[in-house]
Computed example of a mutant assay.
Amino acid sequence: MSTRSPEEQLKEFELTAACLRAYLQKYPELQTPKVLIICGSGLGGLSSLLKQDDKYHKISIKYKDIPGFKESHVPGHSGELIFGHLGENATPVMCMVGRFHYYEGHSFYSNTFPIRVAKLLGVEYLVVTNAAGGINESYKPGDIMVINDHINFPGLAGQHPLRGLNLDNFGPRFTPLSDAYDFDLRLTVFNSLKKLGINRNIHEGTYFYASGPTFESRAECRMIRYLGADAVGMSTVPEVIVARHCGIKVLGLSLITNAVLGEKPASAKDASLKGKSSIDIIDQSKGMASHDEVLENANNTADDVKKLVEYFVGSL
């Protein structure tokens, strides 16, 4: 939540939008992008798909050079905004190579700042990608989940990106989220799978937003599964909520990079009764998540995600 008035916030967004237009002054076709693509962990390579030749230009701007943008300090997030054309129809897009996270100490206002700037630039669609842990027991590392719903756990406890005075210039006070992830956009993805020759498992499910930065405990994983989520991650939902508040349509893709550990830990009490030591008990670290594993599996899946995003954007 920002302490600035709605009028002051609007001026800040407008200043940043004007700054970006100035950067793009020589390339007027890029000043009004149609799609914002947020590249999650290990997916920065999406920006490599942007066309670059004598006809089409690709312009990169570091976050540190953009008013209102924070710097990302997470491995796999390079921290630059890239403008260019993507897909068969050469759709003008802006790519966030790296995002801002609540666990980094940024406010939700800062985390979602680029969404409102994108709206002022003319963006109509948000493609948001992330790396996520598989909660659904049928999900395996390397699978992709098309997000059809979410659980905003911090938001239910009051940490909500729309908390505070409403920004009436962008959207209504009470924003419905029953259609947060657009049906027609999801349908486009599933209709494209055979044409693109993608053979990996593509699921459709619910994303659980936890603020991080720790990976979930075993008990938390069981709770999240009980609540009906299929995958869990530390991003995306605040961005989606603000996008929907702005009237931007959303497509969300999760790369399943690890299977969560939901089994109860080994019992020290039982081991004591049986006269066993930790050496006799299964390794408690086996299967534990790590950011290196997340990046590795994201990189292994990235090519198929690139195909999906390129086809989807090209169909708009």
Rank of each mutant, 00 (worst) to 15 (best):
S48L: 10
H245E: 05
E14A: 12
K276V: 08
N136V: 01
G212M: 11
F113R: 13
N148F: 06
Y23M: 06
K64C: 10
F100H: 13
T301D: 07
S267A: 03
D53A: 03
G252R: 07
N300T: 04
E14G: 00
V242K: 05
F83H: 07
F190Y: 13
L295M: 07
R218C: 11
S290M: 05
V313A: 03
R163P: 01
S267C: 04
L46P: 08
K70R: 14
K194E: 15
G40P: 03
Y23D: 12
D184G: 02
S211Q: 14
K34C: 07
C246Y: 10
K195D: 14
S41V: 11
P213H: 14
S47I: 08
I61H: 13
A210Y: 14
S47V: 14
V242M: 07
E71H: 06
I38A: 10
E124T: 00
Y139S: 06
Q159D: 15
I82S: 07
S2Y: 10
R173G: 04
I241G: 03
G158D: 04
Y181D: 08
N136Q: 07
E310R: 11
S48R: 13
F69N: 04
G142I: 00
I279G: 11
P67V: 09
E263F: 11
K55Y: 11
F215R: 14
I61V: 15
R186Y: 01
F208C: 15
I38N: 09
G228H: 09
G105V: 00
K58T: 15
I61A: 11
K264N: 12
S315A: 10
V232M: 09
G133V: 03
G262K: 08
E104V: 04
G158Q: 03
G133L: 05
L86H: 00
E8H: 02
V146D: 11
G228T: 03
H160P: 01
K119T: 06
G205D: 11
L36E: 00
L261F: 01
C39Y: 05
E124K: 09
G155H: 06
N191T: 00
A268F: 12
V128Q: 00
H245L: 03
A210D: 13
D143L: 07
N300H: 12
L10P: 09
E12G: 07
G40E: 09
K58F: 05
K276L: 15
G105T: 02
N191S: 08
E293T: 10
S267Y: 04
R186P: 00
G122C: 04
T257R: 14
D270C: 03
H77A: 09
G87S: 01
F108G: 00
A180V: 06
K55F: 08
E239F: 04
F108S: 12
T91N: 01
F215D: 13
V305P: 01
V117N: 11
I59C: 10
N300F: 07
Y207A: 03
A18P: 00
I66A: 05
F69A: 03
L316I: 13
R244C: 06
G252P: 00
